[in-house]
Design a protein around this nucleic acid. Sequence first.
DNA 1: GCCAACGTTGGC
DNA 2: GCCAACGTTGGC
Length: 140
Amino acid sequence: MRYWLFKSEPATWSWQDQVAKGAAGEEWDGVRNYQARNFMREMALGDRGFFYHSQSEKAVVGLIEVCATSHPDSKADDPRWDCVDIRALKPLATPVSLATIKADPQLAEMALVKMSRLSVQPVSEAEFRHICALGDTDPD
DNA sequence: GCCAACGTTGGC
DNA sequence: GCCAACGTTGGC
């Protein structure tokens, strides 16, 4: 299993919006960046990831699961844009802020820190487990 | 609100 | 194919 991070502006699509979609999940549409799209094409059913609030909040707030592999983005008028569907699993008991991540030497190599504009990015298993621990949340 | 980083576009 | 101009993202 691989691990990922999905970034969203809460004003546009928040964790609460994601939770409201329930087990059926929702298409992660709107990505118009090749790197982010290519990561979504690599995702497998059951891959796990973080839901991150950018802008005002800047924190990892929840755990998600990939529930549909890559398919054309239904909201794109250009066939080059694919996306996956994800569903909310559970919130982090304690959100893990960007400041916390930046201050942690074990997380210094994360794309979140090094490539701040990338909206869909891979997370290593060690990073995934560490952030779950910081968030007082069972990764399973 | 500002600015740095970075992706895209279009002229040459 | 290069590069300047411009737009967008996201942290501060």
